[in-house]
Design a protein around this nucleic acid. Structure first.
Lengths: 222, 222
DNA sequence: TTAATAATTTAGCCTTGACTAAAATAAAGT
DNA sequence: ACTTTATTTTAGTCAAGGCTAAATTATTAA
């Protein structure tokens, strides 16, 4: 059995590798920051993971997951996202709370538990914040959506995914009426990284800070 | 936050203290056996728990939980039994599998999770194997039932509780048609710790080993 | 009541995964 | 190209919670 810590490192390395700007190298300090440990601790674990043949490590240069490491990362992510969706659908959790709960549960459930909730949820492919859920073979359908912050004036769009990193921000979005599937239209864009004015589901226009709009991803309409 | 290990020790000490013959002293070796660690490891942990004021420890003589330790034990047991029942009721787990799954989950869930499943289950007081579920204040309704192995010939009875310690035995009981609420009648009792012959829910009589009958607890009828 | 046996504790060691401080390497600026 | 700065690694610690082997204390039997 792999430790919780190992699973978390692999998961975070996977996300760093496949998440942001694709050409970004996955460095020790990035990993350390996301794991909330010191760089020295991260170096230690990286060496261990390299030793276990789960990733490739070039000292001072960064890491890249090998097939075995990626497989474990995807299993962990699958657990996480299935649990999040289950908490949300079956137990009525609000979307800002599912991440923290899933973070602990993902390391504790069995394959049987995974299968049972997967079935109960109807074999979903999209998670509680719009993330793709890897299937059992580790296949994941990565989809790249434009950020709400970047779309043109007058454009209409549907919210397809949100960043799950900041619970307070998720709560705020929810209070604004912004959920997965919500239709919006961009009415104004203030200069100097100022707020965007949105029409949300044909209601009165509301103003939204750019910081938030950068964490919302949409499908363009028309 | 208390470690998983501490919670497990306290839980097991509670069960040893309040489980079997009441006058039995809770010794290091008993604890070590149930925790599946060496006696030396158990001694270490016992000293630590005593240091934390969770139990009273008289070297070479055994331990007794203090109020704080008992409170933690009961919270852990509550988590365990609620999860077991949830797995059984909401996810369709068979009763021989719930213990192993709950064993890991009990340390990973939040108070919020506990409350949500408690509510979903309708604030139950009896668990998946008939065990009492402590309430949030740590109150537990311990009930002592006679063992099926000990009841008289010709007696009718209803199964109220089973030991959850041996999954294979639970599976066997299930295959025999023995569940919580099942009505049985004792038809024969072979001598020299031989098998009992039972009529189960008015079906054809079946023979049941005494070993199994010692792990089934019943309410007498008539 | 003393000797043998069983249970318990002590002492010392191991692994995991953190940490700090110091050393080494890479990147950036002039 | 050389110096300054930032990043990364190395070296040495620490706490948890296991382990074995040896020493101690209780219990049982003679």
């Amino acid at each position: 059995m792999l430790s919780q810590s190992i699973e978390d490192y692999l998961k975070i390395i996977y996300k760093l590798q496949n998440g942001g700007a694709s050409a970004t190298k996955v460095t020790t300090s990035l990993i350390a920051e996301r794991m909330e440990v010191t760089a020295a601790s991260a170096t230690n674990m990286i060496k261990k993971l390299a030793e276990m043949n789960l990733l490739e490590y070039t000292p001072y240069r960064g890491v890249a997951l090998k097939t075995a490491g990626e497989k474990i990362a995807l299993e962990t992510i699958r657990h996480h996202r299935l649990i999040e969706l289950y908490l949300s659908e079956a137990l009525g959790y609000p979307w800002d709370e599912v991440d923290a709960e899933a973070e602990r549960l993902e390391h504790a459930i069995s394959e049987e538990f995974e299968e049972r909730i997967d079935k109960m949820l109807g074999y979903p492919t999209i998670g509680a914040h719009g993330e793709p859920i890897p299937n059992k073979d580790g296949h994941i359908e990565e989809h790249t959506y434009p950020r709400l912050a970047d779309i043109d004036l007058g454009q209409r769009a549907v919210i397809r995914r949100v960043s799950d990193r900041n619970p307070a921000m998720l709560r705020y979005m929810n209070d604004m009426g912004l959920q997965l599937g919500t239709e919006i239209e961009v009415r104004e864009k203030a200069p100097f990284r100022g707020p965007i004015t949105l029409v949300i589901e044909a209601n009165n226009p509301q103003s939204l800070g750019l910081e938030v709009a950068e964490h919302i991803f949409v499908d363009l309409l028309k």
